[in-house]
Design a protein around this nucleic acid. Structure first.
Length: 908
DNA sequence: TCCCTGGAACGAAAG
DNA sequence: GCCTTTCGTTCCAGG
């Protein structure tokens, strides 16, 4: 690994190879796959992944008791140490998270061969200088973007998915024992704790302890000033990474299966991503087809161990492990129920709860999507909704603090999530993790973790699992509760910035990156064996103490559009409004320059801490012929601004479609002041003049539209968008008959893993792209135009009204399905987009309904003077910067036919 | 006693 | 380089 010390650009060449009889997949990460969320990085140095399946020789030992050992034999070494020469390979050239010495040390401690003779992972690494190198920050790694090495990104989780893909999952493979598989998957340390002398009878904290162990290697009270103790470094130096040891040094030796370390270790060499999964998926025609025959068992094992991303924490004592050290995950509820019977102890049951986790197998899908994959909230008959949104502020707690309680709802209760359209009797599992709330695609937040709350006041059962360094809270969704869950068991843990930032490969910056979203997922197994995965993200939650106290926050606005003449009163509700609060409307060019800025008149008399009435100022140009998207913010003084809120000026002659008036404020004489909640994030809605999304937008592959929302559904729900789209599984592969629709441009996952035989997805309401593209506000990042990686496709949606705004766009939580993923992708479009993108965008001319080709300007946004301004001052992120590079890349990829999704075979 | 909560001290980083 | 401001983190106290 000389590159570790003498970094050099990773080769773009496909130097790794496969003698694969069945599958050979080689792609430069980020270049070859649109699913990558980090293509920026690859523009600089592109990791290369080559996946190949070979013989199965040597893989049959995976089910033995040496599973744990095998689990770590990433590199082709069998437990005996003998090289598994014929192991299937995943050869990856990528960044490394570990310096050589660390890897070695870890390896030695764990007796794990990290770099075997046949190491199939080639790490060609950028040097330390690359880390946070300005050149990395832009455009590839703007501060809050996930680096390609982010543990929770698809690079790793892709393995997870790949491991569990229908094609490769041992769960579905007749060749591999599900048990054995699950053992490997869920209990990478199985052989450790099971037979470990370190088992402690002590009843250390159970699930909650995971956080401490996983994230708090640093002694309480110490200042985060030493990388040595960082989560990255410390655990590998200070604590044993042995499967037999928890990460946290313990006099007793923790009996628990420490998830973090093995994940970390496993992830060290896991440089894959959604691309692989997508590619594999694309290369298969039926998710049910078991590719096991083509992929050696050991390959799957190996990949499974990578998928330790879904490993579980074992109950104290470790005795719960099965005789074989099993920690089964594939049917964990059952296992959980058996926990007291010495079975899989990775789950904490909550006695006081009715749900004992003993229900039949829940969601567990053979191909769970990575956490940074964008999923729809609605698919076919299913609709995952956040019925009650969390409060916009929740002070997260540090590990050095006690819990600060569960996230609460504005009303004083707790968030509520409900799955509609599910009529089965089997319970499901609702997953919850902490996601980002910036303008990019939703992904696990690097600096926050969900924290399981327990106690008398907690009514909802839950347990934790880790997936790619992201803690996931799993909560039962029970039919008897109408598939509704009250989320009173989820707090938010803040990780020290220094710990995270010092992670190798981590490019996010924690400073001022204090907003998160609750991300809910549910995986619904279909009778045909496939799985529908849905996701919904909450409104943003400000987690810092200071911000919560000082920054104004606009939660709702009564209008989100009005004629350019202005003059209308608009009611804002939120927090921290002050008598001297100002409301400023701004319009920015795509390069970030202010085109227009004006201070609106605020009704001083009406200002309360939570409400503010402002007069919409006239737009600078009264003669616009199409809607113009601008933003406004509330300012409490220098550097104390709210996030940008979206507002659209309409041509004067456009009739206004008013939303339901708010009774509460009718008296204010603000007719039409129906509140639009969290517009910044909740703008999946299309402004009135926009082509309203056809409710049938949810139609996918023959599925009926999403079921009508529950009557009780709050209209303000971010999921309430009428523009919910489904993610056609077909789109993933492609739509040869639908050239006007693009395949998933990002790590968007089809909600259904496979739908053979279904008609290709054709957007029912999009004879042109205007209508459909106008609905592409994805949950995680409405401003796809600016986002890294997956947004390379954004040009396709350049005429999407929400995305056409030159300024940052609100994220649209709620897992709305207005994802670009729903759009089939065609090279011609992309090319057209790429070329037309040169023409520049003139927002007023970009009528959403305009069927003309997108005309998004390709500009390289200037770097902000200060990093933190990216967050604070602009309220937006420097996401537009690499647009050109991405387009160029996109163009090339098209030419090279790297788009696997065009027709399942074009990828290679 | 533990959990939760609000406030603030302190130091580092940014301005 | 110095001073001020801002922010992150830790600590304390009270319910």
């Amino acid at each position: 690994f000389p590159a570790l010390k003498e970094p050099k650009p990773a080769p773009l060449t496909k130097h790794a190879y496969s003698y694969t009889p069945n599958v050979s997949l080689s792609l430069p990460l980020g270049m070859g796959n649109p699913c990558l969320g980090t293509q920026y990085h690859t523009l600089q140095s592109s990791p290369v992944i080559s996946v190949s399946s070979c013989h199965q020789t040597g893989y049959t030992l995976q089910n033995d008791n040496n599973a744990a050992s095998g689990y770590y034999l990433h590199h082709g070494l069998r437990p005996s140490g003998a090289p598994a020469l014929e192991s299937p390979r995943i050869e990856i050239t990528a960044y490394s998270q570990y310096p050589e010495d660390e890897v070695e040390e870890s390896s030695s401690e764990n007796h794990i061969i990290k770099r075997g003779v046949n190491s199939i992972v080639t790490l060609t690494l950028p040097n330390a200088e690359f880390y946070r190198d300005p050149s990395c920050l832009s455009p590839a790694s703007s501060i809050s973007s996930r680096s390609c090495n982010s543990e929770a990104s698809s690079y790793e989780s892709g393995f997870y998915n790949y491991d569990n893909s229908p094609q490769n999952s041992p769960w579905q493979s007749p060749c591999v024992s599900p048990k054995g598989s699950s053992l490997l998957l869920s209990c990478p340390h199985a052989s450790g704790p099971a037979g470990s002398p370190h088992r402690s009878p002590s009843t250390s904290p159970q699930i909650g302890a995971m956080a401490e162990e996983g994230w708090s290697a640093q002694p309480r009270g110490s200042r985060p000033n030493s990388p040595k103790y960082s989560i990255n470094g410390a655990p590998y130096h200070q604590t044993s990474c042995s499967p037999n040891h928890s990460q946290t040094p313990s006099p007793h030796g923790s009996p628990r299966v420490s998830i973090t370390d093995e994940n970390w270790l496993a992830n060290t060499n896991q440089y894959t991503n959604s691309a692989i999964v997508a590619a594999i998926n694309a290369l298969t025609t039926d998710g049910m087809v078991d590719m096991g025959e083509g992929i050696p068992i050991k390959t799957r094992k190996t990949m499974l161990d990578h998928s330790s991303s879904m490993s579980l924490k074992v109950e104290p004592g470790g005795e719960e492990l099965g005789p074989d050290g099993e920690l089964c995950h594939e049917d964990y509820p059952s296992r959980l129920a058996l926990k007291k019977e010495n079975h899989c102890g990775g789950f904490l049951d909550v006695p006081q709860h009715l749900y004992s986790w003993s229900k039949p197998k829940p969601y567990l899908s053979p191909s769970l999507p990575a956490l940074d994959w964008q999923l729809p909230s609605c698919s076919g008959p299913y609709n995952l909704q956040i019925e009650v949104q969390p409060k916009s502020h929740h002070r997260a707690h540090y590990e050095t603090e006690g819990s600060r309680g569960a996230v609460k709802a504005l009303s004083g209760g707790h968030p509520v999530v409900q799955l509609y359209g599910y009529m089965e009797s089997e319970p499901l599992t609702l997953q919850l993790f902490i996601g980002t709330a910036d303008d990019r695609l939703l992904r696990p937040h690097a600096f926050y973790q969900v924290h399981r709350i327990t106690g008398k006041t907690v009514s909802t059962a839950s347990h934790e699992v880790m997936q790619s360094n992201t803690k996931i809270l799993e909560i039962p969704l029970l039919p008897e509760n109408n598939m509704r869950a009250i989320i009173d068991c989820a707090g938010i843990l803040k990780l020290r910035n220094s710990d995270i930032e010092l992670r190798k490969g981590e490019t996010d910056i924690g400073r001022k990156n204090t907003r998160v979203r609750l991300v809910f997922r549910v995986h619904i197994n279909q009778p045909n064996g496939r799985t529908v995965s849905l996701q919904a993200a909450s409104n943003p939650i400000e987690c810092s103490q200071r911000s919560a106290q000082e920054l104004p926050l606009v939660e709702k606005q009564s209008l989100d559009s009005y004629p350019a003449t202005g003059g209308k009163m608009m009611l804002l509700t939120g927090l921290n409004f002050l008598p001297d609060s100002k409301v400023v409307f701004v319009e920015k060019a795509q390069d970030g320059h202010h085109l227009w800025e004006t201070e609106a008149k605020v009704d001083k008399d009406s200002i309360k801490s939570s409400t503010l009435i402002v007069e919409i100022p006239p737009y600078r140009n009264q003669r616009i012929s199409s809607p113009v998207h601008v933003n406004f913010y509330v300012c409490n003084g220098k550097r104390k601004r709210s996030q940008y809120q979206r507002f659209t000026y309409l041509p004067p002659n456009v009739p206004i479609i008013k939303t339901e008036p708010s009774d509460e404020y009718d008296s204010l004489g603000t007719a039409g002041l129906a509140m639009h909640s969290k517009p910044y994030y909740n703008q999946p809605r299309i402004t009135p003049i926009m082509p309203i999304a056809d409710p049938d937008a949810c139609l996918v592959g023959g599925y009926p539209p999403c079921p009508p929302r529950h009557a009780a559904m709050p209209s303000s729900s971010p999921n309430s968008s009428p523009t919910l789209h489904d993610l056609s599984p077909v789109a993933y592969k492609c739509l040869p008959n639908s050239p006007t629709h693009a395949a998933p441009p990002g790590p968007m996952v089809p909600p259904i893993q496979e739908t053979p035989g279904r008609p290709n997805f054709v957007h029912p309401a999009s004879p042109d792209h205007g209508s459909s593209l106008g609905m592409l506000h994805s949950q995680g990042s409405p401003n796809h135009l600016h986002s890294p990686g997956p947004h390379a496709y954004h040009p396709v949606y350049a005429n999407s009204s929400p995305s056409s705004s030159p300024v940052s766009h609100p994220s649209t939580p709620g897992g709305t399905a207005e994802s670009p993923f729903v759009q089939a992708y065609s090279p011609s479009q992309a090319q057209a987009a790429a070329s037309s993108a040169q023409t520049g965008e003139s927002s007023p001319s970009l009528l959403p309904e305009d069927a003309s080709p997108p005309s998004m300007a390709i500009t390289v946004k200037q770097e902000p003077q200060e990093l933190d301004q990216m967050y604070l001052d602009d309220g937006e992120l420097p996401e537009t910067r690499c647009t050109y590079a991405l387009f160029a890349s996109l163009h090339q990829l098209i030419k090279d036919r790297h788009f696997f999704f065009l027709d399942g075979s074009a990828f290679i």
